Simulated assay, not measured.
Amino acid sequence: MADTLHFRGINYDTGTNYMPGWHSRQDWSTEGMRTDIAVIRDQLHCNAVTLFGSQLPHLAECAEYAADAGLALWLQPRLIDVHAETALDHLTQVADLAQALHDRGADVRLNVGCELSIFAPGIIPGRTYQHRATALGVIWPLLPLFNVLLNRRLRTAVARARDHFTGEITYGAGSWESVDWSPFDHVGVNLYRDKSNAATYGAALAGLHRHRKPVLITEFGCCSYPGADRQGGAGDAIIDWSDPTRPRVKGDHPRDESVQQRYLAELLDSFVEHDVTGAFVFEFSEPTYPRSPDPVHDIDVASFGVLAADPTTAVGDRPYALVPKAAFHEIARRFSAA
């Protein structure tokens, strides 16, 4: 058994189109991105990063800078609610980017997508990814059929990717997805621990080795309020977005950063125990979930970011400062020791 993870990483969003006409990095700047990559390498002590997003220019700019910084890269296109051909064309462009970086000596690999049964139309019924996520909870008995459709989509994606990229390939599978891993070089799973799987989480990790390929936990994370550890990947559901200009925390959810800190520490221990090759914290920051002194509007408590966006202070060309949370220091300590 290895005594550490080979890939000690974090997810970094370069701008994802979760809503039409909008993406999650409206504040994108070269200066800010370069500062973030330096923090990932020099303060968090990561040796790897997953760069994901829908904005190809951002992804390319960030990938080139992170490669020059010496980080191992996993590039992941993340298009939301777009049809298969559009997604394949985008994947082709990302694969070409990865190959160009590979040709110049970068340590780069490709992740062909994230939880496509939800984020891509045509597998689970539903007009948007929110509708499909809701539908899955209702028509769960049809999951075997959805997995057949998913694997058909993945085989096409891998074939296209291999036409354009000669390096290693994985996928960021949802825990409900049953993926045929035979075309991939690594098993990749977004494995959040919550109240439904806490008792079997270790067994789930052990089971990933049945595919006889290196195992990556492509996402894992937690929010920062009491009980968030029992919600896992659904921890952000406590936010009321009915007024997008003034989102609110639903109910009483005071800030408790020790919840996120402890959760990440426990899972990192589990990954080493179960011979996981690499793990990528979700995620670096979510500026669309800003911190506030008013608990009703402190929606950062429902962010998976290990840095909080503080809009009371502008830094450089950003209208906020990024403030490390307790989990940030936990990751830094562990990755530095490794």
Rank of each mutant, 00 (worst) to 15 (best):
L101T: 01
H90V: 00
R153Q: 13
F280G: 02
S175K: 14
G188A: 02
C223Y: 02
A63T: 01
P244C: 05
A279M: 02
S285P: 08
W28R: 12
D229W: 07
W176E: 04
R25C: 04
N190A: 14
S54Q: 06
G172M: 07
H186W: 14
S303Y: 07
R162G: 01
V112E: 06
G227P: 06
N147K: 05
H253Q: 03
M19W: 15
I331W: 07
V49A: 08
Q93V: 01
Y18V: 07
C46K: 01
T245Q: 15
S242L: 10
A87P: 13
V296Q: 13
G15D: 00
D310C: 04
A100D: 10
D298Y: 11
S178V: 11
A332Y: 14
Q55S: 13
T245S: 15
L56T: 03
L205K: 04
R230D: 15
S242V: 04
I139N: 13
T313E: 13
P121D: 00
Q99Y: 06
R318T: 03
H274W: 15
G202W: 04
L191V: 02
A157W: 09
F7C: 09
I37T: 04
A69R: 15
A84Y: 14
L79N: 10
A95V: 02
A204Q: 12
G207F: 03
T16L: 09
R104F: 06
Q76R: 15
H186S: 06
G233A: 03
V306I: 14
F328N: 05
F304P: 07
A159F: 11
P319S: 01
D180N: 04
V306A: 06
E283T: 14
H329P: 00
L307Y: 14
D42C: 08
E115D: 05
R246T: 09
D240G: 02
L208T: 01
A309I: 07
G207N: 05
E31R: 12
G316I: 03
G32L: 07
T166V: 09
Y320K: 03
A326R: 14
A48D: 07
G32W: 08
A326Y: 12
P311Y: 10
H164I: 05
R262S: 11
N11E: 03
I238L: 05
D275T: 03
A206L: 12
V108H: 08
A237E: 13
Y171E: 02
L142D: 10
T312K: 14
A159V: 05
H209M: 02
V249F: 08
P226V: 00
Q43P: 11
L307H: 12
E257C: 04
D269C: 06
G122M: 02
A308G: 11
D298F: 10
G105K: 05
P144S: 06
F282M: 06
D317F: 12
P226S: 08
Y289Q: 08
T86P: 00
D229R: 02
L191W: 10
S336W: 15
D194W: 00
C114L: 12
D310P: 04
V323P: 10
L149I: 06
V138H: 14
G70R: 05
A308T: 08
V179K: 01
T156E: 15
L110W: 04
I299M: 09
V323I: 15
A67L: 01
A100H: 10
I239N: 10
L101C: 07
